[in-house]
Amino acid sequence: TYYTVKSGDTLNKIAAQYGVSVANLRSWSGISGDLIFVGQKLIVKKG
């Protein structure tokens, strides 16, 4: 599943919304830090 980052989103908010960890969200999407951008597509795998 892809999630497109919206204004005001954080990795914590997105992870909580999908019931996954921030570490997994980073790993799946190839992100090393906490910086995400509006319009960026993140990969989300539901448990």
Score class of each variant (00 low, 15 high):
Thr1Ser: 12
Thr1Lys: 11
Thr1Ile: 15
Thr1Phe: 15
Thr1Glu: 15
Thr1Cys: 15
Tyr2Asp: 07
Tyr2Asn: 07
Tyr2Ser: 09
Tyr2His: 10
Tyr2Gln: 09
Tyr2Val: 14
Tyr2Gly: 06
Tyr3Glu: 02
Tyr3Arg: 01
Tyr3Val: 08
Tyr3Leu: 04
Tyr3Trp: 03
Thr4Ala: 07
Thr4Leu: 10
Thr4Gly: 02
Thr4Tyr: 14
Thr4Asp: 05
Thr4Trp: 11
Val5Leu: 03
Val5Ala: 04
Val5Tyr: 03
Val5Arg: 00
Val5Trp: 05
Val5Glu: 00
Val5Cys: 06
Val5Gln: 00
Val5Asn: 00
Val5Pro: 01
Val5Phe: 03
Lys6Leu: 08
Lys6His: 07
Lys6Asp: 04
Lys6Ile: 09
Ser7His: 14
Ser7Ala: 15
Ser7Pro: 15
Ser7Trp: 12
Ser7Thr: 13
Gly8Trp: 04
Gly8His: 06
Gly8Pro: 02
Gly8Ser: 05
Gly8Met: 04
Gly8Gln: 05
Gly8Asn: 07
Gly8Cys: 04
Asp9Arg: 01
Asp9Ala: 02
Asp9Lys: 00
Asp9Cys: 05
Thr10Trp: 03
Thr10Val: 04
Thr10Ser: 09
Thr10Leu: 04
Thr10Arg: 03
Thr10Ile: 04
Leu11Ala: 02
Leu11Thr: 02
Leu11Tyr: 04
Leu11Phe: 05
Leu11Pro: 02
Leu11Met: 07
Leu11Gly: 00
Leu11Asn: 00
Leu11Lys: 00
Leu11Gln: 01
Asn12Met: 14
Asn12Arg: 12
Asn12Val: 15
Asn12Ile: 15
Asn12Gly: 13
Asn12Cys: 12
Lys13Glu: 11
Lys13Gly: 13
Ile14Asn: 00
Ile14Ala: 00
Ile14Leu: 07
Ile14Ser: 00
Ile14Pro: 00
Ile14Met: 01
Ile14Trp: 02
Ile14Phe: 01
Ala15Thr: 02
Ala15Gln: 01
Ala15Lys: 01
Ala15Val: 02
Ala15Gly: 06
Ala15Ser: 08
Ala16Gly: 09
Ala16His: 11
Ala16Met: 12
Ala16Cys: 11
Ala16Gln: 13
Gln17Met: 15
Gln17Ala: 13
Gln17Glu: 13
Gln17Asp: 11
Gln17Cys: 12
Tyr18Ala: 06
Tyr18Ile: 09
Tyr18Gln: 07
Tyr18Ser: 05
Tyr18Asn: 07
Gly19Leu: 07
Gly19Cys: 09
Gly19Pro: 00
Gly19Gln: 10
Gly19His: 10
Gly19Tyr: 06
Gly19Met: 08
Gly19Asp: 09
Gly19Ile: 04
Val20Thr: 10
Val20Ile: 15
Val20Asp: 02
Val20Asn: 02
Ser21Val: 04
Ser21Arg: 04
Ser21Lys: 06
Val22Arg: 04
Val22Gly: 03
Val22Trp: 04
Val22Glu: 09
Ala23Glu: 15
Ala23Leu: 08
Ala23Trp: 07
Ala23His: 11
Ala23Cys: 12
Ala23Ser: 11
Ala23Arg: 08
Asn24Asp: 15
Asn24Lys: 10
Asn24Cys: 13
Asn24Tyr: 07
Asn24Ile: 11
Asn24Phe: 07
Asn24Pro: 01
Asn24Thr: 13
Leu25Met: 06
Leu25Ile: 15
Leu25Asn: 01
Leu25Pro: 00
Leu25Ser: 00
Leu25Trp: 02
Arg26Ile: 14
Arg26Pro: 02
Arg26Tyr: 06
Ser27Leu: 15
Ser27Tyr: 12
Ser27Ile: 14
Ser27Gln: 15
Ser27Gly: 09
Trp28His: 04
Trp28Phe: 05
Trp28Thr: 05
Trp28Ala: 06
Trp28Arg: 02
Trp28Asp: 06
Trp28Ile: 05
Trp28Tyr: 06
Ser29Cys: 07
Ser29Thr: 08
Ser29Leu: 04
Gly30Trp: 05
Gly30Val: 05
Gly30Ala: 09
Gly30Phe: 07
Gly30His: 10
Ile31Asp: 02
Ile31Gly: 02
Ile31Cys: 05
Ile31Trp: 07
Ser32Arg: 10
Ser32Tyr: 10
Ser32Pro: 08
Ser32Cys: 12
Ser32Phe: 11
Ser32Val: 14
Ser32His: 12
Ser32Gly: 09
Gly33Glu: 08
Gly33Phe: 07
Gly33Asn: 10
Gly33Gln: 08
Gly33Asp: 11
Gly33Lys: 06
Gly33Val: 07
Gly33Arg: 05
Gly33His: 09
Gly33Met: 07
Asp34Leu: 07
Asp34Val: 07
Asp34Lys: 06
Asp34Ser: 09
Asp34Asn: 11
Leu35Ala: 14
Leu35Val: 14
Leu35Lys: 14
Leu35Arg: 12
Leu35Tyr: 14
Leu35Asn: 14
Ile36Asn: 00
Ile36Lys: 00
Ile36Thr: 03
Ile36Phe: 06
Ile36Trp: 03
Ile36Tyr: 03
Ile36Glu: 01
Ile36Ala: 03
Phe37Ser: 09
Phe37Asp: 07
Phe37Leu: 09
Phe37Gly: 06
Phe37Val: 11
Phe37Asn: 08
Phe37Ala: 09
Phe37Trp: 11
Phe37Thr: 10
Val38Lys: 07
Val38Ser: 07
Val38Arg: 05
Val38Asn: 06
Val38Phe: 05
Val38Leu: 08
Val38Thr: 08
Val38Tyr: 04
Val38Met: 07
Val38His: 06
Val38Ala: 10
Val38Cys: 07
Val38Gly: 04
Gly39Val: 04
Gly39Thr: 04
Gly39Met: 03
Gly39Ala: 03
Gly39Pro: 00
Gly39Phe: 05
Gly39Ser: 04
Gln40Val: 05
Gln40His: 03
Gln40Gly: 03
Gln40Asp: 08
Gln40Met: 11
Gln40Lys: 03
Lys41Leu: 15
Lys41Pro: 05
Lys41Ile: 15
Lys41Asp: 06
Lys41Asn: 09
Lys41Trp: 07
Leu42Pro: 01
Leu42Val: 08
Leu42Asn: 00
Leu42Thr: 02
Leu42Asp: 00
Ile43Leu: 15
Ile43Asn: 08
Ile43Val: 13
Ile43Tyr: 10
Ile43Thr: 10
Ile43Glu: 06
Ile43Gln: 10
Ile43Pro: 05
Val44Ser: 02
Val44Cys: 04
Val44Gln: 01
Val44Asp: 03
Lys45Thr: 10
Lys45Ala: 13
Lys45Leu: 12
Lys45Phe: 14
Lys45Gln: 13
Lys45Val: 11
Lys45Glu: 10
Lys46Cys: 15
Lys46Leu: 15
Lys46Gly: 14
Lys46Ile: 15
Lys46Ser: 13
Lys46Val: 15
Lys46Tyr: 14
Lys46Asp: 13
Gly47Glu: 14
Gly47Ile: 13
Gly47His: 13
Gly47Arg: 10
Gly47Asn: 13
Gly47Pro: 15
Gly47Ala: 13
Gly47Phe: 13
Gly47Tyr: 12
